[in-house]
Design a binder for these strands. Structure first.
Lengths: 196, 196
DNA sequence: CAAGAATCGGAGTCTATACTCACCTTTTAG
DNA sequence: CTAAAAGGTGAGTATAGACTCCGATTCTTG
């Protein structure tokens, strides 16, 4: 029985540090996945992502045990980005912040199918991770502020706002938007949200 | 070369008449498909439909050359049903008919994923078949009537109504509706549609 | 009732894709 | 510089589901 010539490398267990190239590949995979999932939705093939990232499929599965895990990672990333957007908006005018955010989301969802998936999960909630929860919380803050500012009726609650947000985003994937159809649709929803 | 002992059976070419059992099977397939697609959406497997219909897979493909063709048949069927509903509603009070229809659609979409697919197609339109076109037309009639009756703003047009309808129906598939969330969501949309 | 046409049926083919594995390459500690 | 550990790779496996094919079965007509 050969005695171990050297002790365990790296910072023992749990530690984060990955090998230099592994870190680079991980980043590339995440970037590629974000692009591909955004364009083709959750049905995009793992192979396409691997190719776009310039790595073998095996590498993708080494970093993410499952395609679903990769998707979740991306969703978390997107959620975090949106939560930061909200953070910024919360600094500004409470009367308009909510509407600005809602509008941006709908605009984005046209090109980023990931956003829609994200919202769907945020709607169902349950085992959702922190980033998604933070997003939810942010939306609730925007809503509360707008209600305090009097630009949204007091009797509207977060769940229906989520439903409307999901709805309009989903619809934008299925309708062939003529230039301002999106705006007119939002106008109706916004009018429904304002106090009479 | 043996001369044909008997002339072509049945009414020559094109004719409709199928063999008795074939007709029965066709009906069974359509019924099964309607149920299964309603429950599982367009991803339901052909095999499941065949089984529920009590026939072999081969039989399904004899009647419908493609899974997609079968789906289209069902969508047409559902569209026809809805168009008839509308026909009935058009007889009643124009002030409320539109809202009644909208509400029904959303309620149905929870259990019938086919309805959502149907609407998505009706939204995109292009090569859509007659039944779907009839449905679209019906919705436009309901809208026009309601506008004449003054229960819907005159500046709202059909496309955004379709978008909203698609949106709320889609959302109902993704949110875990608490009892009256659906109603509160609809309330907001309806308020946006009414004249101020 | 019998011939033959129309249908049925379901094993088998084909394709797409997630995921594994045995072997090779790169990194890194010492 | 070197060996061991970490990581990379992509052919290969497994599975699922659409669609085909042809012998077996059932209906129809005379």
């Amino acid at each position: 029985m050969p005695s171990p010539k050297r002790a365990t490398t790296r910072s023992a267990l749990d530690g984060r540090s990955l090998r230099a190239d592994a870190q680079r590949n991980r980043r590339r995979i995440l970037e590629a996945a974000e692009t591909v999932f955004a364009a083709k939705g959750r049905d995009a093939s793992t192979e396409e992502i691997a190719q776009k990232a310039g790595v073998g499929i095996g590498t993708v599965f080494r970093h993410f045990p499952t395609k679903e895990a990769l998707l979740q990672a991306i969703i978390g990333k997107v959620a975090t980005g949106l939560a930061e957007d909200i953070e910024r908006l919360l600094q500004g005018d409470p009367a308009t912040a909510f509407f600005t955010f809602f509008t941006r989301m709908v605009e984005q969802s046209t090109e980023k199918k990931t956003v829609v998936d994200l919202l769907a999960e945020a709607g169902i909630d349950i085992t959702v991770a922190k980033p998604v929860h933070a997003l939810r919380q942010g939306i609730e803050d925007l809503l509360a502020n707008a209600q305090r500012a009097g630009t949204i009726r007091a009797d509207v609650r977060a769940p229906e706002v989520m439903a409307l947000l999901i709805g309009v985003c989903q619809a934008s994937l299925h309708t062939s938007w003529e230039p301002d159809l999106q705006d007119r649709t939002l106008a109706v929803v916004f009018d429904g949200l304002r106090p009479r």
